[in-house]
């Protein structure tokens, strides 16, 4: 298992603009960042390209078998579930939808393992409909990670963050820009 901090962000409706605003403001982070956005194939590379234009870290679609590198942002492609093997390697799987969605945030977050000592795992649930990510956040918390949900005021739709908060496993509920500040504080 490679010794990186990991940030996994689950996001859906309202996500593209929220991610653009978030990553336009934050400096390079001492972590691998994996974004699971509910997105169909065909739109995924456009979102990755648009994020790459504003982010201070390299952004790319996650590729099957790829090893994660710190200071890089990986966007789960449409049409697959994303899992991490050993907290370090991307595995893309076809298969049935989970929570009616693909990629599923729950699938991605539940693939995380307890980090090596002194390394952080941070789970973030941002704007979206439905409840994908709630069980994922519960899992991140059980691993000893830090968990953040976007607040109702800045979420385009508060469904997913609300479902996450209702698990009782969310440490912080923040407006969008405070999420970035907290990530920096925790990682750098």
């Amino acid at each position: 298992m490679v010794n990186n901090n990991i940030v996994m962000i689950g996001v859906s409706t309202g996500g593209p603009i929220a991610l653009k605003r978030l990553f336009a403001e934050i400096p390079p982070l001492n972590a691998v960042l994996v974004i699971v956005l509910h997105i169909p194939p065909g739109m995924d590379y456009k979102i990755a390209r648009s994020l790459a234009a504003v982010a201070s870290m390299p952004v790319a679609l996650a590729a099957d078998g790829e090893y994660l590198r710190s200071g890089h942002i990986y966007l789960a492609p449409g049409g697959f579930h994303l899992k991490l093997e050993g907290n370090s390697r991307i595995i893309l799987e076809e298969g049935a939808r989970v929570n009616f969605v693909q990629p599923s945030i729950d699938v991605a977050m539940k693939s995380l393992h307890k980090p090596l000592k002194k390394r952080r795992i941070i789970g973030v649930i941002m704007t979206g409909m439905g409840k994908d990510g709630a069980e994922g956040i519960r899992h991140v918390k059980a691993l000893g990670g830090v968990t953040i949900a976007q607040d109702a005021v800045t979420s385009a739709i508060y469904g997913m963050p609300k479902a996450a908060v209702e698990t009782g496993a969310v440490d912080f509920v923040f407006p969008l820009m405070k999420i970035g500040k907290k990530l920096f504080e925790l990682l750098n």
Binding site: T13, G14, P16, H38, P40, M43, V101, M129, A156
Partner: peptide, 8 residues
């Protein structure tokens, strides 16, 4: 429909 609704 989550992946088809970009904003709200």
């Amino acid at each position: 429909l989550q992946e088809y609704v970009t904003d709200y």
